[in-house]
């Protein structure tokens, strides 16, 4: 029994990490239809920002080290969002109608960001010490649930809830949805679509920063941490379907649970192979993912 609970918990934990990495993509890729291969590097930026905030705390305010994480969260969000905003202004706005080209160009951006990180922080991984109050875990029915994993789970649920509220309840969020549903109509109604594009991209990038912040709890971080997650994150969005947040949530937890269970019954390598085969098989049944927006347009 405890084995089952542990595996299910591990599945949810992996799912929550995948979800975190994929939330930003759900906005930039799912809603806006832009392939941002530099998303992984925006995650890296968030992770390094957490590291920087921690170093600053360790130097100037060692007595309040326990709270550095609460400062690191907004810092990571805003730095990544700012970077994303700049990226949209300089590069991506020229490539909205050429998705394959934007894939290649943002890949170039990701290589440059990696090299910059390597120059500033060095090629070896750096360790971020998690706050002390996240050490240990809670013990229920003979199974230990580490606080760090629980924290990430709660953190991601709060983030996706905040994003949902933003997109459905606030005027700014509704403008984003209006533009993504029908750009010409929204523009006719007086919405500045250029501004909305930039904001939406910045928000998606900001969530990448938050994901980076959360990843520091799991282990050391390095310049290539983003590439490690980016392919899986895109798989989550493809499996979940674009255009709806709930699809991304289901996709992330689905992949998390299934791959943990397969990893338990076979090996990590075989699980990866089988997971991919399952995704291809699933797309045979639902080519546009789990949840998709119904449309009558052809392309």
């Amino acid at each position: 029994m405890s084995v089952v609970i542990t595996q299910v918990f591990n599945g949810f934990s992996l799912g929550s990490i995948l979800l975190f990495v994929a939330i930003g993509l759900a906005v930039t890729f799912g809603l806006m239809g832009v392939i941002n291969m530099a998303h992984g590097e925006l995650i890296m930026v968030g992770a390094y920002m957490t590291y920087v905030v921690q170093q600053i705390f360790a130097k100037y305010a060692p007595q309040s080290m326990g709270y550095y994480f609460f400062i690191a969260i907004p810092v990571a969000f805003f730095v990544s969002a700012l970077l994303g905003w700049g990226l949209e202004k300089i590069l991506i706005r020229h490539l909205y109608h050429r998705p394959l080209d934007s894939l290649l160009a943002t890949w170039g951006v990701s290589l440059i960001l990696q090299q910059i990180a390597r120059t500033i922080f060095g090629a070896p991984n750096v360790a971020v010490l998690p706050p002390e109050w996240l050490d240990g875990g809670v013990r229920i029915a003979g199974v230990v649930f580490p606080y760090k994993r629980l924290f990430i789970l709660v953190f991601v649920i709060l983030s996706i809830f905040a994003l949902y509220i933003y997109l459905t309840k606030t005027p700014a969020g509704r403008r984003i949805r209006a533009v993504t549903l029908n750009r010409d109509m929204a523009s006719c109604l007086g919405i500045s679509t250029r501004k909305v594009d930039a904001y939406a991209f910045a928000i998606g990038s900001g969530f990448a920063g938050l994901a980076g912040c959360a990843l520091t709890l799991l282990g050391p971080i390095g310049p290539t941490i983003g590439t490690y997650y980016i392919v899986d994150a895109f798989m989550v969005v493809i499996l979940g379907g674009v255009g709806k947040l709930i699809g991304t949530v289901l996709g992330a937890f689905g992949i998390g649970l299934v791959s943990t269970l397969m990893e338990y019954s076979t090996s990590a390598t075989m699980a990866k192979v089988m997971m991919f085969a399952l995704i291809i098989a699933f797309l045979q049944w639902k080519p546009s993912g789990l949840v998709s927006v119904k449309t009558r347009s052809l392309d």
Binding site: F234, I238, K272, V273, F276, P287
Partner: peptide, 25 residues
Amino acid sequence: NRIKGVYFSLLSQAVVVVFVTLFIG
């Protein structure tokens, strides 16, 4: 299934990840 464009690109990239993991593992 008329999966095309960037979706196909990303799937083909996932194939790379699968094979590299397999060959290293």
